[in-house]
């Protein structure tokens, strides 16, 4: 009832607010890289690209790590260790995102600039094909840093979903696999994972939804540059960070409208991602009911 209404009105109002921008720039809004406040030209490609790249990087790091933690919690750790570690990881989810941002800006950024970036430049920058991704001045803030900070933020979410669905696997299944002489790894990879596959993907999507919409942490460490660059070490901007930075300083209607239009894009994308995640998670719980 009310909740449903709320969602519809959010979508409606952001669409209405962004209408002017969509009207002015048409489809070009999505494909233009220009973002010129004074001249009044706005294109969404750079923020969209920045959002996608940082979220993708975050997933790339967070998924294997979460998977490892979930295995550790369900199969490897002795029972007395499970509770404390699970709650510690959940604590990580409770820390406000602005703390991650500050930490990223003051501690992790300089750390990246001093130690990681030069190393990456020297070793990975020389590689053919992907070398271009890793070249650039060691600024410390940029897409790679943002991706890593995002990864830390979404690890708890993905881990807790994986941990929960791993526990729904019937122990009869696991025990029979062990009885046939399977190693722990084989049980996880061949029994647990196929059984929970859709839900695991759902959990990953849930994390992706978080990463896409995360604002504060990214605003701190992304550097907010409206330029398109191939290197992961260069600053960029994401949808959410652009809105956070410029909204209260936007004086022309067109500028404001463009920002709201960006918000609408973000809303649609996260809505789709989260809806997919929920549907996948629901499929497992239905299987459980059988």
């Amino acid at each position: 009832m009310l909740v449903l209404l709320l969602l519809a009105s959010i979508a409606g109002s952001t669409l209405w607010g962004g209408f002017e921008a969509f009207k002015t720039f048409g489809f070009g809004f999505l494909t233009s890289t220009e973002w010129d406040v004074v001249g009044g030209h706005f294109g969404a490609l750079v923020p969209v690209y920045g959002t996608l790249v940082t979220s993708f990087l975050a997933l790339l790091i967070a998924v294997p790590v979460s998977f490892g933690i979930a295995i550790f919690l369900t199969e490897v750790a002795p029972p007395w260790l499970r509770m404390p570690i699970a709650s510690a990881i959940e604590l990580l989810a409770g820390i406000p995102s602005i703390i991650y941002g500050m930490w990223g800006l003051f501690i992790f950024g300089p750390f990246m600039a001093e130690y990681m970036a030069p190393w990456i430049n020297d070793n990975l920058g020389a590689l053919p094909l992907i070398g271009g991704l890793f070249q650039g001045p060691p600024l410390g803030i940029g897409m790679l840093t943002a991706g890593i900070v995002l990864a830390i933020m979404i690890i708890p979410f993905i881990t807790s979903v994986m941990h929960e669905v791993f526990r729904t696997v019937p122990s009869a299944l696991k025990e029979s696999a062990y009885a046939l002489g399977g190693t722990t790894w084989e049980v996880v990879w061949d029994i647990v994972l196929p059984y929970t596959r859709t839900a695991v993907v759902g959990g990953i999507f849930l994390g992706l939804g978080r990463a896409l919409g995360e604002t504060m942490a990214v605003t701190f460490v992304l550097g907010n540059a409206h330029q398109f660059s191939a290197s992961l070490l260069m600053p960029s901007s994401s949808i959410a960070s652009v809105i956070a930075n410029e909204f209260s300083e936007s004086y022309t209607d067109l500028h404001r409208s463009s920002l709201i239009a960006l918000g609408f894009l973000l809303f649609v994308v996260t809505f789709v991602v989260l809806a997919l995640a929920r549907l996948m998670l629901m499929r497992l719980s239905r299987k459980e009911g059988l």
């Binding site: 896409l212 919409g213 604002t215 973000l266």
Partner: peptide
């Protein structure tokens, strides 16, 4: 809605 981006 629970995990919708708060900035929106």
């Amino acid at each position: 809605l629970l995990s919708a981006p708060s900035i929106v």
